[in-house]
Design a protein around this nucleic acid. Structure first.
Length: 661
DNA sequence: ATTCGGAAAATTTTT
DNA sequence: TTTTCCGAAT
């Protein structure tokens, strides 16, 4: 056979980027920084992404090998976008740059050293729901569930564990800080954690936090590997540093310790992930940990009009804890931000919808308009009103494409072929079949656990012998389905596996169980389509679990931006911008959320408000309903958010909305 | 003893 | 809209 060698071009093409022309003075300093640690305080809209992108390009242009650069970002999308821009600048292949979220990079590293922490190749990544389910299994085994016993549920325990790992403060620390009312259960909770950790190893699975935890441990406990990775990554760039947590900061310190070329970029005013253990003090402490670091500030805002920036600056000035910044706008003047009180949620939705239509008539494309809110369910009435008026929109919040039940059901069939011990997936898949509920699934799984080759239990119909109540039909289906899947797995054909599951069993299941059968079937067709890009079931699965891109639309047609209004939580709007932004539900108790009323909580909510406001380029509308109907209480009067009332009235304009009949 | 459907309750934010 | 709880049906 003839060998054909493909040469990849990994050297920059264009002779030189004209940095002076494309960047401002502040930015150039950062981009062309030579050696040593750097902290970049980058205000909202100050071209942070641009700076990171050009920095990577600059390094490559100066002969740094792509495999020696590590780019850590908040979402995988951000990383791939930045690398694409670098590719465009230099006309070179950036595939060898290590870029992605902490979790993504952690996964890659853990895949090469799985055995070091007691895992085997092909381990499963549990998402939050899977982790919760597994914790509940543990609870049951320990006799801590059931009606007679009051004990925190899996979802809450998962949060405690997660917080403990991410802040490295142990279970006790997490309980004291976030769940003091469970302090008396500390010992039991710790025992559950121990058992849960062991269980994960047994079934060869990790949760999101393990990807960081094990990564950290691999570095901390193995001098050789620590040196290897610290040498390998000669330049480390961390985006959104204000939203990193303790363990992430520690990881950076470890892999950066030899070359010390760590550049972190962030804005303390935009730290909004403390519930995930993010600590914006990482930004303050960076100069203490790297005493020789250079600090740069990017204070020129290219995004928003002076009016919007003024509004945002005035708002964030009410926060005590922050780095001093002096953000200046360079854009021409525009309209003042608008604050408007609406009668109720219905009127709020009508106002937003009507204004959107007017904006469209004025020539603003729909995809340049966003409606932002604090919590996903705040979008309900807006969705209804937009639908009623035939305004196309895209929702970026709520259940992610891959978190939907039908997606996870089908995926669980593939997962057991990669990891035969995957208890969560086995139980999930078994329950799809008639007469198999919780109990039967448990019993069948016990059989699976006791065999070396579980798939054969099904193909050889051994299950039927011990579970007589199951119909012959089910047993036969299993036999042929699993045989077929096994063959496809050997061919590494994830897409065909999906189609087989849907065609053989799941299509029917959906028809009988879901009223929206057709749209779910559509999702699965898209899923198979997406899977066809992969030639390894394992890669497909692990990438799937870490996929942050929200909607199916975004995953199936990346880069295709239809003319649609964006509906998003503020959290998910981070890093994005639109010409016109509506912020709805700005009422006390909603935003700020009533669950975040202590001092730190309020400051974080205010940062969130700041993030929302600074997403807008030209126009900003702040709305709140005055009354709200609640089932039990009837009409409730809402007060405008303190984030509005505390503002100097000169920074906004008030609109009085009335109805014409 | 289990499954499964239906009613009632609850809903911050995410890799 | 989804999750959880409860009781009827098997």
């Amino acid at each position: 056979m003839k060998k054909y060698l493909l040469y990849r071009d990994t050297s920059p093409k264009r002779a030189s980027i004209n940095y002076e022309k494309e960047l401002n003075e502040e930015q150039i300093k950062v981009v062309t920084h030579k050696e040593g640690p750097v902290l970049v305080i980058a205000g909202a809209g100050s071209g942070k992404t641009r700076v990171v992108t050009y920095r990577v390009a600059y390094l490559l242009e100066n002969g740094i090998q792509p495999q020696n650069i590590l780019l850590l970002t908040f979402t995988n999308k951000a990383a791939s976008e930045m690398l694409h821009r670098v590719e465009h600048l230099l006309k070179m292949d950036t595939r060898y740059v290590w870029g992605g979220t902490f979790h993504h990079i952690g996964n890659m590293i853990l895949r090469s050293h799985a055995e070091l922490v007691g895992l085997k190749k092909g381990f499963t990544i549990l998402d939050n729901e899977d982790a919760k389910d597994l914790i509940e299994i543990v609870l049951k085994e320990m006799g801590l569930s059931g009606r007679e016993i009051r004990f925190p549920k899996g979802a809450i325990l998962r949060e405690i564990f997660s917080y403990a790992i991410n802040t490295m403060g142990g279970i006790e620390g997490a309980i004291i800080e976030r769940y003091p009312y469970f302090y008396h259960l500390k010992d039991e909770i710790e025992a559950v954690y121990e058992k849960y950790s062991r269980k994960k190893l047994e079934i060869n699975a990790v949760d999101f936090d393990d990807l960081l935890h094990y990564w950290y441990r691999i570095l901390a406990e193995n001098e050789d590997l620590r040196k290897y990775y610290a040498k390998r990554f000669s330049y480390i760039l961390v985006d959104e540093y204000q939203d990193t947590n303790k363990i992430q900061a520690e990881i950076i310190d470890l892999i950066g310790m030899i070359n010390r070329n760590v550049m972190v970029v962030g804005d303390d005013a935009q730290s909004i992930y403390s519930f995930r253990g993010a600590d914006f003090r990482n930004v303050f402490d960076f100069p203490k940990r790297y005493t020789d670091c250079t600090i740069y500030k990017l204070e020129t805002n290219y995004r928003s009009t002076p009016e919007i920036l003024n509004f945002a600056n005035e708002s964030i000035s009410h926060n005590k804890k922050q780095f001093h910044k002096n953000l200046k706008s360079v854009k021409p003047h525009g309209p003042s931000p608008v604050v408007t009180a609406l009668r109720d949620v219905i009127q709020q939705a009508e106002f937003v919808a009507q204004r959107i239509l007017e904006l469209r008539d004025e020539g603003v494309p729909l995809n340049q308009i966003a409606v932002l809110y604090r919590a996903h369910y705040h979008s309900m009435e807006i969705q209804m009103e937009l639908t009623r008026r035939d305004i196309p929109f895209e929702i970026r919040s709520g259940l992610k494409f891959f978190e939907q039940a039908h997606i996870k059901d089908v995926i669980s069939f593939l997962r057991v072929f990669v990891n035969e011990k995957d208890e969560i997936s086995w139980k999930r898949l078994l329950k799809i079949f008639p007469k198999v509920g919780k109990r039967t699934a448990e019993q069948i799984f016990e059989r699976i656990q006791a065999t070396t080759n579980p798939i054969d239990l099904f193909t050889q119909k051994k299950i039927g012998e011990s579970f007589k109540r199951l119909s012959k039909d089910t047993i036969d289906t299993w036999s042929s389905l699993f045989a077929e899947l096994k063959e496809l797995k050997e061919k590494e054909a994830p897409a065909d596996m999906i189609n087989t599951v849907v065609g053989r069993v799941y299509g029917d299941y959906m028809r009988y169980n879901y009223p929206d059968y057709e749209s779910r079937l559509d999702d699965l067709i898209q899923l198979a389509n997406f899977a066809s890009k992969y030639h390894s079931v394992e890669d497909f699965l692990s990438e799937l679990s870490l996929m942050s891109g929200a909607s199916g639309e975004e995953i199936i047609h990346p880069g295709v931006t239809d003319e649609r209004v964006i509906l998003s939580t503020i959290h998910q709007a981070k890093g994005l911008e639109w010409k016109v932004v509506f912020v709805v539900w700005c009422a006390e108790g909603r935003f700020p959320n009533s669950k975040s009323m202590d001092e730190d909580g309020i400051e974080e909510e205010r940062r969130l408000f700041y993030v929302a406001a600074t997403r807008a380029m030209d126009e900003l509308y702040i709305c709140y309903p005055m009354v709200y109907y609640e089932k039990h209480f009837g009409y409730v009067i809402l007060k405008p958010s303190r984030f509005i009332t505390e503002l100097d009235t000169s920074v906004y304009e008030e609109w009085d909305v009335s109805e014409s009949n």
